[in-house]
Design a protein around this nucleic acid. Sequence first.
DNA 1: GAATGGGTACTCGGATATAACTTGTCCGAGTCTCTTAGG
DNA 2: CCTAAGAGACTCGGACAAGTTATATCCGAGTACCCATTC
Lengths: 162, 162
Amino acid sequence: MRMSRGVEWVLHCCALLAELPPGESLSAAQLARFFDVPHAYLAKKLQALSTVGVLRTSSGPSGGYQLGRDANEIALLSIIDAVEGVGRCFICTELRQQGPSAVSTHRYTTPCGIARSMWRAEDAWRSVLSKTTLKDIVRIGNVEVPAEQRRRAQIWLRSEKG
Amino acid sequence: MRMSRGVEWVLHCCALLAELPPGESLSAAQLARFFDVPHAYLAKKLQALSTVGVLRTSSGPSGGYQLGRDANEIALLSIIDAVEGVGRCFICTELRQQGPSAVSTHRYTTPCGIARSMWRAEDAWRSVLSKTTLKDIVRIGNVEVPAEQRRRAQIWLRSEKG
DNA sequence: GAATGGGTACTCGGATATAACTTGTCCGAGTCTCTTAGG
DNA sequence: CCTAAGAGACTCGGACAAGTTATATCCGAGTACCCATTC
């Protein structure tokens, strides 16, 4: 169970977009250059985010991506669900209904106990991610990211806009 | 992020082994027949469990798998880690150290804030799974599994031993 | 000088190849059991 | 009748293919901007 690499990319992209002045946007190509990742594949992932409204797109020159709503309204879970799909990690194929001991289907009212246990763990995971927002990420960054890096990022953004 | 199908298989296998009379064992082939899954592939997964001590193997005729320790000492997390690998789901490639804003490596003391947020969610997931044991699964089964199915399973076990 | 029309260049979005991993299969080494021969 | 040796068959364990998903890429549709032309 490894998470897609694209998840890391879009999380960083969203964090960067969250620090952008209101109204400004960055194109997929610019984001790809900033993080040094293949831009076409990154665009495919960002596209998924715009579909669900986490990001908002604008076409044409000086277009690009910006946050679809306030940073404190965007939970990490929304981003991950958009990129990875909303399905559960653990899939129950009703194994208990196969083999020599199975009885008729309608006898199984509650979901499989194993599946419920696994899903309870997933719920805990999703709960944490739903409570963590982009705003939290930015707040952490404001404290921990080296000032030098923040300054360089600002310079880079200026040069892109120039 | 989808979990391997083999996880479901081995969880059901462990649950079945947990209800076996002490000292008895079931071979991979028998378990595969019981759940109607490819036995060679199942054996590959069970093998991983015996490596870490969750299961104990015995060779030769009337050999097979049995629990390596008491059912209440086997957490679901142990099983999943053995089958899926112990690595984290979210992998941080230190994206912040790439691109035009990166500064020298030694300036990054704490792990990336995004990674820490993701790992906090994983920890919640692992916490639930580490607190759920095979004994809990058996307990749930004793209440919820139809009596008819339990009876059939007993009959099947007898016929296999015969 | 202002407005308008068109061209251009940039954007996103979806369809298309490649790589990695999960899934599935096979065969070989080892071991317990059963049989059988001998004492 | 008991013991022991050997053959046999069953077990697990690791090496070997096929299908599916993630990764990476390309090209087309659409849009805003810029410039030239016209009024």
